[in-house]
């Protein structure tokens, strides 16, 4: 790996703790220094207190967990849709060059359009249904799924494909039995990025068009001039986002180990 020596367990622990303390320390000092008002930067303990309070006292119609749950539900649907459509599409694009030539330019064009720009259309097409947020999440989560499946399929070892061909495999078989298994590492890496972007897009959508959910909590906290609610919301979003990423990373590592190419 890297030339620099690895840390001992103790060194790592000490430095990690030091880093964490530094972060909270600077935060605490900045808020206490009095150059900032309560609204500007509430101290960490105020935020922690507010966070806990939100878990048992409903704000804007529900407790923090309930809001998180509705957000997560929307995220789940949008992400599932992105995966179910994106991965097969990516594999097909990786296999059929002509499909790639046609679709890729479109894809490259749409990539830069923020999911949040689709919000007016989401309201128009889906109204109040879950379709609206799902559309937004889909636009965020879709590209990485396709791109990574595409890359995985494109760079599959040619000998495998040749072998499958000589055994008489048709397109469909090649895609499902050669490309798919070979692309799994790339796909799983793409899933992590996709999940991250999907979760972020959801929050964006909820800042504008929602009446429940964690993004909604952020807006309502802002309207009540409560920076601690806003920060509690941000922490909650961060925790869930981190958890999703950690879960997918676990899966990625397990898969790598299983396939024996641990880097």
């Amino acid at each position: 790996m890297n030339a620099h020596r690895s840390l001992t367990r103790r060194e790592w622990l000490v430095l990690t703790c030091a880093g964490t303390l530094a972060f909270f320390g600077i935060w605490a000092l900045a808020s206490l220094a009095g150059l900032t008002s309560r609204q500007f930067l509430p101290p960490p303990w105020t935020v922690a207190e507010k966070f806990v309070e939100l878990t048992y006292q409903p704000f804007s119609g529900a407790t923090l967990q309930k809001h998180l749950l509705s957000s997560f539900g929307r995220f789940g649907m949008g992400f599932a849709l992105a995966v179910l459509i994106g991965i097969p599409l990516g594999l097909i694009l990786g296999w059929f060059r002509w499909a790639d030539a046609i679709v890729s330019p479109l894809f490259d064009a749409l990539r830069f359009v923020a999911p949040i720009a689709w919000v007016p259309f989401a309201a128009l097409w889906f109204g109040t249904g879950i379709g609206g947020p799902v559309l937004i999440i889909f636009t965020g989560a879709f590209p990485p799924c396709v791109i990574n499946a595409h890359r995985g399929a494109r760079y599959v070892d040619q000998t495998l494909i040749e072998a499958a061909r000589t055994l008489g495999a048709r397109h469909w078989h090649i895609i499902t039995e050669v490309l798919l298994p070979a692309s799994v590492p790339s796909i799983v890496a793409g899933l992590r990025v996709s999940a991250g972007l999907g979760w972020q897009s959801l929050v964006g959508a909820e800042l504008i068009v929602a009446s429940s959910g964690i993004g909604y909590v952020l807006v309502k906290g802002q309207a009540s001039i409560s920076t601690s609610i806003v920060m509690s919301g941000m922490i909650a979003i961060g925790i869930v986002g981190f958890a999703i990423d950690a879960l997918l990373r676990r899966i990625e590592v397990q898969l790598r180990r299983r396939r024996g190419d641990e880097r």
Partner: peptide
């Protein structure tokens, strides 16, 4: 090891959530 905790804490927060 030193920077990671801060990075890991801030990273999952969507850019949009920083607007307020």
């Amino acid at each position: 090891a030193f920077v990671n905790p801060t990075f890991l804490l801030l990273r999952p927060i969507p850019p949009l959530a920083w607007i307020p």
